[in-house]
């Protein structure tokens, strides 16, 4: 058992930046994660401390925060990974508007998803209404479907975080979502023009920050964004295709 110091961001109002760090001291025992610490502070020192969480097992993606400046799930960050000789800071995700303390308004993400064309399967392969797909053909889609929608990739993406392009750019999470639809062997929809014009995939300059913070270790940049960029490029910017299109 050791005592550690935590600096937790407490909001005064829901206006951006209106808050201060509050310092707490609490006992830390073996195996504890950051979310345990927040819970124990809540139960003993600050019952109105706001934190969003659900499964506490890294499966639901609710407890995203910035721990010592690193975007992480609080439930999957063990205290033993942190340097406890200095105060540990816990802050909300900065890319989204604050609600209270560690809780942010992530509703923008839910609106963005509705703007992406939905799954449209081909006619079933068998008379009983089912399809046939080989495992090797679904492997790459299954990688994208591991996403737990923690929005840490959105939090860290500089197009959103620093340039506030929320109205023009859908962010890494939704490129992964679009890739999952585009690469589903059954899907017949075409999202390539939308990716270029409505979702502005060109804004991404592949710094791979999103990939680094993904708790599910999805290769967001390499496996989702770059292949989608390639589809956009081969349709709109490839000279041979452009030439052929002129004669169509």
């Amino acid at each position: 058992m050791a005592t550690a110091t935590f600096k937790i961001w407490r909001t005064h109002s829901s206006a951006p930046g209106d808050g201060t760090y509050q310092t707490f001291q609490t006992e830390v025992s073996e195996g504890m994660v950051v979310l345990d610490v927040v819970h124990s502070i809540q139960a003993q020192q600050a019952p109105d401390l706001a934190v969003r969480w659900n499964c506490k097992a890294g499966k639901c993606g609710s407890c995203s925060a910035e721990i010592n400046g690193n975007p992480r799930l609080m439930c999957m960050t063990r205290m033993s990974q942190l340097n406890l000789s200095e105060p540990v800071t816990i802050e909300p995700m900065r890319t989204f508007p604050p609600i209270k303390d560690l809780v942010t308004d992530v509703s923008w993400n839910f609106r963005v998803k509705k703007g992406i064309k939905k799954f449209k399967p081909r006619q079933p392969d068998a008379p009983d209404g089912t399809w046939r797909m080989a495992q090797r053909d679904v492997d790459r889609v299954q990688e994208f479907r591991k996403c737990i929608e923690c929005f840490l990739c959105q939090d860290v993406c500089h197009v959103l975080r620093d340039h506030n392009k929320h109205d023009e750019f859908i962010g890494p999470r939704f490129f992964v979502y679009a890739a999952n639809l585009e690469m589903n062997p059954l899907d017949t929809e075409d999202r390539v023009d939308d990716l270029k014009d409505a979702h502005n995939i060109g804004y991404c300059n592949i710094t791979k920050c999103c990939t680094k913070v993904c708790p599910e270790h999805i290769h967001i940049t390499d496996n989702a964004i770059i292949p989608l960029k390639e589809r956009v490029v081969s349709r709109h910017y490839d000279p041979v295709t452009r030439l052929l299109r002129m004669f169509k």
């Binding site: 009983d128 046939r132 889609v141 299954q142 639809l181 589903n184 059954l186």
Partner: peptide, 20 residues
């Protein structure tokens, strides 16, 4: 279960390509 596949679920597959 089958209708989920038509809504985009991607189940693990058998060797002959059906839901495992």
């Amino acid at each position: 279960v089958r209708e989920l596949e038509g809504w985009g679920a991607v189940f693990d597959r058998t060797a002959d390509g059906r839901i495992n």
